[in-house]
């Protein structure tokens, strides 16, 4: 009996399934690509055929233009591709994100893409999908990453706003997923005032609303000249890149916050000059990651990207077979 490798293995373009002649999240243009979610390092333009969820396809079109691929197909039901049967299952990471289950004659593979088991009102929750081979991410695969509940983290933002009612609170959050996760958390915490969003977030926020996700009142974070005061005490969400620009200085004495799993480590927060670090993640943390492997008990665990050493060590200690794929092209430190 051939090893699992014969049915799915890494190639320079990405993870390749020879039975179906397709790649998962390829980093270079290929003939056929299956895409887990819309983040730029996983979803790239220029493939011939793309199979993904409706929402991921919409997001790619928004990012790259409607002609980002020659052919697109919505993954809404199990589908046969050559010798493989593929199906998409919610990953809980961002809107449209999916784990891809690939059934081959050599076993069932589940490619998680990025995922989290922390539920969010901004996307469908993660579902366990049993597999012979779990192909997992390992972004936060260190025992120090134990992300707290997001609700008390958001409470800290509202608390800071009460302490500094005149200061604008500028929260850095990635445009796809994290921004909407933060806004829905704010709404759940009872914040019913306006949330100001940076221009770079607008279209994605509108798309979430179109998809039935309630984000409440959103306003453009544009300041009229000489009218700083209108942003006193405002909550503003912006992509991290905006914090390096003069845009920030337009706000009255801003509190700079950042919503990310990395904020758990103080040195990281200080490095970025963050005054209000909010540990809000859309990836599995260490307990979730190890629990997933323990619960699904796959015959093998393959690690696509992130910090694989610690996870390999944990698998060895706990009697799980594991290997690192050392795949390149994915951001080791997204969020």
């Amino acid at each position: 009996m051939p090893g699992f490798d014969a049915f799915l293995h890494p190639r320079p373009e990405g993870l390749y399934c020879p039975g179906g002649d397709f790649f998962v999240d390829p980093v270079r243009p290929v003939h056929r690509a299956l895409i887990t979610h819309g983040h730029a390092d996983h979803a790239r333009a220029g493939h011939m055929h793309v199979l993904a969820t409706r929402q991921t396809l919409d997001i790619m079109a928004m990012r790259y233009g409607a002609d980002f691929a020659d052919h697109t197909q919505v993954a809404d039901a199990p589908m046969r591709i050559g010798a493989a049967t593929v199906s998409f299952h919610p990953a809980g990471h961002v809107l449209g994100s999916a784990q891809i289950r690939i059934e081959t004659p050599g076993g069932v593979f589940v490619v998680t893409g990025d995922y989290t088991r922390t539920p969010s009102a901004a996307c469908a929750p993660w579902e366990p999908v049993p597999a012979d081979v779990l192909v997992t991410e390992a972004t936060f695969a260190l025992p120090v990453f134990r992300h707290p509940d997001p609700d008390p983290e958001i409470a800290r933002l509202l608390d800071s706003r009460r302490t500094f009612p005149d200061r604008a609170h500028l929260i850095g959050a990635y445009a796809l997923g994290k921004a909407q996760r933060v806004i829905t958390l704010l709404r759940a915490a009872g914040w019913d005032g306006p949330v100001y969003v940076h221009g770079a977030l607008r279209r994605l926020c509108d798309y979430h609303v179109d998809q039935g996700i309630d984000l409440g009142e959103l306003r453009a974070a544009t300041i009229e000249r000489g009218n700083k005061a209108q942003f006193s005490g405002a909550i503003v969400i912006a992509p991290p890149s905006a914090f390096a620009s003069p845009w920030v200085q337009r706000f009255p004495d801003p509190v700079i916050g950042f919503a990310s799993g990395w904020m758990q480590v103080r040195a990281r927060a200080r490095q970025r000059g963050v005054e209000l670090p909010l540990v809000i993640s859309d990836h599995v943390d260490w307990p979730q990651l190890t629990a997933t492997i323990a619960e699904l008990a796959p015959a093998e665990t393959w690690i696509t990207h992130g910090r694989e050493e610690a996870l390999l060590r944990w698998c060895t200690l706990n009697g799980h077979r594991a290997r690192a794929l050392n795949m390149v092209g994915y951001e080791d430190e997204p969020e």
Partner: peptide, 29 residues
Amino acid sequence: ELFALSYDYVGDLAETIALAWPDGAPDTV
């Protein structure tokens, strides 16, 4: 080995232990 990898990443002994302490609650709540 897991501790060494963690400490190497965090760079502060007290912080590493505070974060990774296995029997402790993950958050204040």
